[in-house]
Nucleic acid binder design. Structure first.
Length: 649
RNA sequence: GCCGUCGUAGCUCAGUGGUAGAGCAUUUCCUUGGUAAGGAAAAGGCCACGGGUUCAAUCCCCGUCGACGGCUCCA
């Protein structure tokens, strides 16, 4: 026996009977001493060693042939790792099998793999209860232990329809499979499902699974269709991976901005005021003001001009902009006053456009960049509200650029620079850019200009990006920026959109050097997105432990006993004098209690003053995340704080 | 909006067909202390709201509102 050298390669079978080599696992093969066999085995791992460490190298492999030729694999290779989506898809079949056994009346519909697991939708009059899930999970484990082989066979459309004649959903799927595509049935044990394939070879490959929740979902996601019962679950190769995943979920819950918002007294949403409307408490508002100041600084440097527009305006404005026509169900209002109908502002663009239109504009004025922390209100359906990330009233770091088509390029570059500045400062190291283009039908002559501008700007900044064909807004192509937070979740922040439509609707013009009027192009851009969402993401990204420059309380002075009160107050005054956000803990509690309290509040510096410190004129500095305590003079602590804050460390 | 789960003190949660409890937080007193909870007392509740069943409802039933998990949507 001989172990393969590429130690970081794992091998899994893909559908096309090839070996799929991925990183992060151990691969080993053993072989008999027969010459032919050893040659093939050698060929395999020579190929693999070439790809050690590389993601997804494929080599032709057929387990039956290999067995016949005497190539044997060790346990890990005998049971090659199926890609997770296929494993989870298999788990969905296992779930449907269990449902068939325990709830024969429930009709299976579809059951795909999703990002962290899988779901399966069933048509059943009564919803599944948590107890049902436990029973199903137990049955699923039996099915996994039985290690059924997943066997597939191709059938005719008529056969498929006949097989599922009692299940209108499956019949519908069978009817809609395009001509020429194979129709396949897959079977494990006593359960057969209509399915296009992509499975583990055997149910036993599922090392760990868990059913998580039930939810209603519509057939085809359309609310006019029947409501189905969806069961969510997750599946992994090993119990350890499942445990890690569950731990990550727990960590996400600990960092939930709604929970931390209450614990750290950052913000609240008040039942008496209505859902989706945010009350920023002092500690949250301080952080928001710092974020705003940071953004303003960048805007000023890049030649943006501030504007401020009303929150309530006449409906007429939205008739012109077309929002009333396309967006009415998302707008608050109308409010009737003296026979005029008013609406709460759902977007800032029309207001900025009015300012543009207030003068005759020359080509010399362009590009004109209007920025506003614009508060907008959108009537979101009650079921979609979520903490700070989905609200009904929010403030965008909005700006609208009016420019000539040949200025698009430069403006995009500048916007990308600005986005990078923001992402870096707030330590979002992991982000992705999406270029969404318009549907072929909607494309105008200017789309190519805009898309090229976006592409060039991204390439110039060395940013990789993904192209989403046809995902653009109805009025033009766009660039979206998504970030991954500290625990790996993805959030959409900023969006930059090119708009050819509104300048048309509002008949915007500028006087060109030729003395004639021309149509400007508009760029809508919000880089943080909304202050509410950005703040919510920040809270989760840092787990509430804001870096010093952002922390609502940067340092707290803690006297050990009353004798040090005056010294502590003096220190506090000095910190305030130097412009820092500091507090003092004068409470009648022991040191241990105070330390605990401020640690749970995630304050970056706790400055302890006892007898010793008063004598020496120092502070005992307890820094967040640092075990070791330091003794510093007040002056040198202030110096350290100053440099930490200015470097935004 | 739809489906499901849930609404008890500021927070986290017990509990019962005979109008309520804990821990933490708050206030006061004792304690004057050396790095993640010192002790005592007080205060705090239309048990989400409205209706029904009952001699009696926080509890059972119906409705409304709200929160949460999804569907859909989006900054």
């Amino acid at each position: 026996m001989r172990a393969a050298t590429p130690s970081n390669v794992c091998v899994s079978r893909s559908r096309s009977s090839q070996l799929l080599a991925t990183s992060n696992a151990t691969w080993s093969l053993s072989e008999s001493v027969s010459g032919a066999a050893s040659r093939s085995a050698n060929a395999i791992w020579q190929y693999l060693s070439k790809y050690t460490g590389h993601f997804q190298a494929t080599v032709p492999f057929d387990s039956k042939v290999a067995r016949r030729r005497g190539i044997r694999a060790e346990a890990s290779a005998l049971m090659p790792e199926t890609p997770l989506p296929e494993l989870r898809h298999t788990a969905a079949h296992v779930l449907a099998y269990a449902v068939q056994d325990l709830f024969p009346g429930a009709k299976p519909t579809i059951g795909p793999a999703i990002e962290n697991g899988f779901y399966y939708d069933f048509d059943r009059a009564t919803p599944f209860t948590p107890e049902d899930l436990e029973r199903l999970e137990a049955r699923m484990r039996e099915i996994v232990s039985a290690d059924y082989e997943m066997t597939g066979r191709e059938v005719s459309r008529a056969d498929a329809i006949a097989t599922f004649r009692d299940n209108p959903y499956k019949v519908e799927i069978a009817e809609q499979i395009p001509e020429g595509e194979p129709i396949t049935l897959y079977t494990i044990g006593q359960f057969t499902d209509l399915c296009r394939g992509g499975h583990a070879k055997r149910t036993g490959e599922i090392g760990a699974l868990k059913l998580q929740s039930v939810a209603g979902a519509y057939w085809h996601g359309d609310e006019h269709n029947a409501m189905l019962q969806r069961i969510y679950g997750t599946a992994w190769h090993t119990q350890r991976e499942l445990d890690e995943y569950l731990l990550q979920l727990e960590e996400a819950q600990r960092r939930d901005h709604r929970k931390l918002g209450t614990e750290l007294d950052l913000f609240s949403i008040e039942e008496d005021a209505g859902g989706g409307l945010v009350f920023w408490h002092p500690k949250g508002a301080i952080v928001r003001e710092i974020v705003e100041a940071f953004i303003r600084e960048g805007l000023r440097e890049r030649g943006y001009l501030p504007v401020i527009t009303p929150h309530v305006v006449s409906e007429r404005l939205y008739e012109i902009s077309g929002h009333l026509e396309n967006y009415a169900q998302n707008m608050f209002g109308p409010l009737e006053v003296e026979n005029q109908r008013f609406r709460l502002k759902p977007m800032n663009c029309p207001g900025h456009i009015l300012i543009y239109k207030s003068h005759l504009r020359s080509y010399r004025d362009l590009p004109l960049r209007y920025s506003e922390f614009g508060t907008v209100y959108r009537f979101e359906r009650s079921g979609v509200l979520h903490g700070l990330t989905r609200v009904r009233g929010f403030t965008q770091d909005d700006a609208h650029l009016f420019c000539m088509p040949d200025q698009l390029q430069r403006e995009f570059e500048q916007t990308v620079e600005e986005a990078l500045r923001l992402l870096r400062a707030f330590r979002f190291d992991d982000f992705a850019c999406y270029l969404s283009t318009r549907e072929p039908l909607a494309r105008g002559a200017t789309d190519d200009v805009a898309e090229t501008a976006i592409r060039n700007a991204l390439e110039r900044a060395n940013l990789p990006f993904v192209v989403d064909q046809g995902g653009g807004a109805f009025y033009g192509p766009k660039l979206d920026i998504n970030v991954r937070d500290a625990i790996g979740r993805i959030w959409q922040l900023g969006t930059v959109q090119v708009d050819f439509m509104l300048p048309e609707r509002f008949d915007l013009t500028y006087r060109g050097s030729d003395g004639r009027d021309h149509r400007p192009v508009m760029i809508h851009r919000a880089l943080a997105g909304s202050m509410e969402r950005f703040f919510g993401i920040l809270v989760e990204h840092f787990g509430g432990a804001f870096p010093v420059w952002l922390a609502p309380v940067q340092a707290v002075v803690v006297p050990i006993a009353e004798q040090q009160l005056s010294y502590a107050r003096e220190t506090l005054a000095q910190l305030h004098g130097a412009g820092f956000r500091a507090e003092i803990d004068e409470s009648n509690e022991k040191l241990g209690y105070k330390i605990r309290h401020w640690k749970t509040q995630k304050v970056p510096y706790i400055l302890v003053c006892g007898k010793q410190e008063v004598e020496d004129g120092t502070l005992n500095v307890n820094e967040r995340g640092v075990e070791e305590k330091r003794s510093l003079s007040v002056a040198s602590f202030i110096e350290e704080l100053r440099s930490t804050v200015s470097s935004r460390a």
